Every structure is written in structure tokens, then in C-alpha cells.
Simulated scan of single mutants.
Amino acid sequence: MAMYLVEHPDEFHQPGAIKHALGVPSAGAVSEVLKKMTAAGHAVHHTGPHRFRITQAGIDAAGTMPAAAPRPTSGSGGGRPGRRGPVTRPNGEQYFPRRLAGATDVDVLRRLRDKRIPVLLYGPPGTGKTAMVEAAFDDLLTITGTGDTVVEDFLGNFIPLPEGGYEFVYGPLVQAMRHGRALLIDDATLIPPKVLAVLYPAMDGRRVIHITGYRNERVEAVDGFYVIAGHNPGVHGAVLTEALASRFDVHIEVTTDWDLARHLGVPAAAITAAIALNADADAGKVTWAPQLRELLGFTRVRKTLGLPTAVANLAGRAPLDDRPAVVAALTAAFGTPVTPLTLGKQR
């Protein structure tokens, strides 16, 4: 019940409505729990009619609670642990929110945006950082960072017109500031630090930048403007400077959710191998291990070309230096020798 209130922190709820939402048999029992939460300072109670709302203390306390036991569903034999419904991303794919700070990751990002608290998401490529942000914000603009990213990629540049001449087209940072949109700097730590510096005045108390290449135009951020950055530690060329890290008040590590992988139909043996390889990566034995992106790709290949080909393909995706360890982990998990997918001579 506490987790339900956490997911709707700004609303007052009547016991009967909570009973209906949770599918429990007694509104009276719900009311008694709510009264105990109120007595503990975890909820506030208004009368006429009786309704309750969770407090910040309640949200904090809920974050320390163990996960709720799964509720049986018809024909499920006990079912899976309950999840909040999936969110559709712009590309049409579904994102399944994950628990974070007593709520879901999507809810937390939205709450932080409301308070103008910037977030740095970090973790291996393929763990769902970009998908999470796309699910959280339907007004998202994105800059994908590389070593070749320049200031103009943030601010805009002149483009030639068909009839001759040039027109200045504003970049994603300017658009996000003027229209109050969220801006994701994906792979931010691949961008040269001198280029990233263009972002800092927009993120501090000034919330103002100047387009020096276009009439020194002043751009001021309106309400709703928000910056999120993604960082892949260990990726060649990715450097998290103190100047960048200090601009983000919240740093969230994003790892692969193995339960979600099972929920999405990834075979158990593939998950077993991935978990073992991730443990090796944490110990410094390998530099690469499959994440959710690779596991979902594995599942698609399996459905199209069959299991042996999918396993061979997953082995072939590993960097050459790590391939022997990946082959060994896949061989142990699937119980059959594995060879990377190779096109050889005609038979």
C-alpha cells in the first residue's frame, strides 16, 4: 500500500479507491493501515470524506522496504512480481519502469525535473539509460556525443538555402531552453570538455547562454528546461571530468535488470552466462559482458535463426580479447561447445 501511495505522491486517496486499485478484499483493513501510517508520520489524514496522502517521511521509509510479495493471478501459478505498466518510447518499443528510491525510475526522473535537479546516468552501454529517459519525457531532445561533437551541435549553425544564401538554425540546447524541454546529452563524456562548457551557464543559477556565432544572441531558459547526461565508464575515450560531474546533483548507476530480462523472454542459460560475465567484468577479468540490449538481440536472433545460431552470434559479438572467456561462459551455461558465428567455405 505504501508503494501505491509513493507512485501517487501528490494525491489524496480514499480507502475504497485504494482497495479497488490494489484488488484487496477490505476497505476497512486499508483504512486501518492508513491510520497506522498517519500515526507514524508517514501519511496525512483529512476528513469529510476520509482521505490520505503520503508524506516525504513515508516516501523515505518506503524506499527501505523489501519488495512486495507477488500477488497470484489467474492461471499464473503464483505469477511474477508486479511491475508498473510499460511506457511506450518514441520508437514504439516498450519500457518497463524499475524500482528506484521508493518509486519507479520514470517517476523519480520526472520528480527531479520538477525540482530542477540534474541527473547523470552511468553504467555499461546497453543497460537502458537512454530508454529510461525517453520513457520519462515525451518532449525529449537528444544530443549524441562523440569526440567530434562541436559547440555548433549544441547552439546551432548556418545552413545553405536552396535559393542561395544561408539561414541560422538553432540547435537542441537553444530549442530546449526556449521551449522548456528536456535535453539528454547521451555519451556526454565522449564530448571534449571545452565543448561541454557551453552547457554549464544553462545549468547553473544563471540559466542563460549567448550564441556568440550568431549576433551574440541571448537565450534564457524557461520553466521545464532540464538536462540529463549519460556516461559509459570504461568506454574508450569517455572521461568524466570534475567540472561535468559537479554539475549533476544526482548520479544514478544503471545496470541490467535480470528479472526484467527473464520477464521479456530471454532464455535462462543466456542470463546465467551474462551474470557470470558481468561478475568477471566487475573483477577486472574481462572488459565486456552482455547487457540487456545484447540479451534482447539474442532473443530476436533465436526466434529468427534458432538457438545454436543465436548463441554463436552472441559469442561473436564479444571483443577479440574477451572472446575466449565469453565462449567459455556460454559453453558452461548452455552445456554444449560454442563457436563464434563464422561464414566459411561452401559445403
Rank of each mutant, 00 (worst) to 15 (best):
A2Q: 14
Q14W: 06
P15Q: 05
G16R: 08
G16K: 10
A21Q: 03
P25C: 05
V30C: 01
S31L: 05
E32T: 07
L34A: 06
T38W: 08
G41V: 01
G41I: 06
V44F: 02
T47R: 14
H50E: 14
F52E: 03
Q56D: 13
I59V: 08
D60V: 06
M65Y: 13
A67F: 12
R83C: 14
P86N: 11
F96H: 13
L100G: 07
A101P: 05
T104I: 01
D107A: 10
R110I: 00
R111C: 04
R113H: 01
K115R: 13
L121N: 05
G126P: 04
T127Q: 11
G128F: 06
K129W: 09
M132K: 04
M132F: 09
A136N: 07
D138Q: 12
D138R: 15
I143R: 05
E152D: 15
E163C: 10
G165Q: 09
Y166C: 14
Q175D: 12
G180D: 04
L184V: 04
L190H: 08
P192I: 02
K194M: 10
L196C: 06
L196F: 04
A202C: 02
I209L: 04
N216E: 13
E217I: 07
V227R: 00
G230P: 02
G234D: 11
H236A: 15
T241G: 05
T241S: 09
R247L: 03
D257K: 08
W258V: 14
V266L: 11
P267Q: 11
A269S: 13
A269W: 03
A273E: 02
A273P: 03
L277H: 05
D282M: 14
A289K: 05
A289Q: 08
G297R: 14
F298K: 03
F298G: 03
R302A: 15
K303C: 13
K303D: 15
K303P: 10
G306W: 08
R317N: 15
A318Q: 02
R323S: 06
A329L: 01
T331E: 02
Q346E: 15
